[in-house]
Design a protein around this nucleic acid. Structure first.
Length: 268
DNA sequence: ATAATATGGTGAT
DNA sequence: TCACCCTATTATC
């Protein structure tokens, strides 16, 4: 379930388990075998997350770029048994393993390539050093819609299709609203709301946008169907109207015509 | 058994 | 806009 929250949580968990340790590195599936052999037995330094990108740094041996894509996963395996499924990369410490399956990208790269990747990414609300002003200026200077802008990793790094739909609902903004229709305060509010939601996502290791007090359950215990407001739903939770679905930026988005308006225009 | 689906992204048309 | 890549899980026949 990889939007930015997944990657940041993963980096945190990897660091807790593996930072500073000598790791066995293997590629049970075989497609990363040569590279794993170079890393095998070397000291792992640290994991970093930036948007949906994960960077694994070794002290001497190199730098691995991981992007989970739609279906990739990195799972902790206590006990380190025979790998299940097709594991591209296994990092093994004494009593536990981390197994990477189905990544869109898993590559040993030079530092310069990481710099290029980071240069293409917009600010990441989960990073303390994020440049909010850059986000605000990009959005307010654009004629593209908020629905398109939020999926563009060069505009803001880490938002995916679920957070996009949910944050626009929460702020009452129609996904078709052009970026330049937002006031500066609205653009900042958009950033802050995304940051708030992503942080909850990191903490719970899943996307939860609903207020748990509406659900009568602790966030971690909320059933999956209760965690969201609009994504993939038929009806608006607030007003009961049928949600509209559009394709915006090549992906489906759900929104409520009664609860979400194009900024600056009256509700229909 | 086979198909559909998935919170992503790229490269060709 | 479409085809395609990566894999696991769930739905349908």
């Amino acid at each position: 379930m990889p939007e930015g929250h997944t990657i940041h949580r993963l980096a945190r968990d990897l660091n807790r388990d593996l930072a500073g340790a000598r790791l066995a590195a293997t590629s049970p599936q075989g497609r990363f075998a040569e590279e794993a052999a170079e890393l095998d037995g070397e000291a792992f330094a640290v994991a970093h997350a930036w948007g949906k990108h994960l960077f694994l740094e070794w002290t001497r041996a190199g730098l691995v770029h991981v992007h989970l894509g739609l279906i990739g996963k990195m799972r902790r395996r206590a006990g380190c048994h025979e790998p299940r499924g097709s594991v591209r990369l296994r990092l093994a410490a004494d009593a536990l393993c981390w197994d990477l399956t189905g990544p869109m990208v898993c590559a040993l790269i030079p530092d310069a390539e990481r710099d290029e990747i980071l240069a293409r990414l917009g600010p990441d609300p989960l990073r303390e050093d994020a440049d909010v002003d850059r986000f605000v200026e990009t959005v307010r200077g654009s004629g593209r819609s908020l629905g398109v802008l939020l999926l563009d990793q060069a505009v803001i790094a880490g938002v995916g299709n679920v957070y996009r739909a949910e944050v626009l609902f929460l702020l009452g903004l129609d996904p078709r609203t052009p970026g330049r229709a937002l006031t500066e305060a609205q653009a900042r509010e958009l950033w802050e709301e995304i940051r708030r939601l992503l942080r909850i996502g990191v903490r719970l290791n899943r996307i939860v946008t609903r207020d748990p007090s509406e659900v009568d359950a602790t966030p971690a215990k909320m059933r999956s169907a209760d965690r969201l407001y609009v994504y993939k739903r038929d009806e608006c939770r607030r007003c009961g109207a049928d949600l509209r679905t559009d394709t915006v930026g090549g992906r489906s988005i759900w929104s409520c015509d009664r609860c979400q308006a194009v900024a600056g225009q009256a509700y229909v």
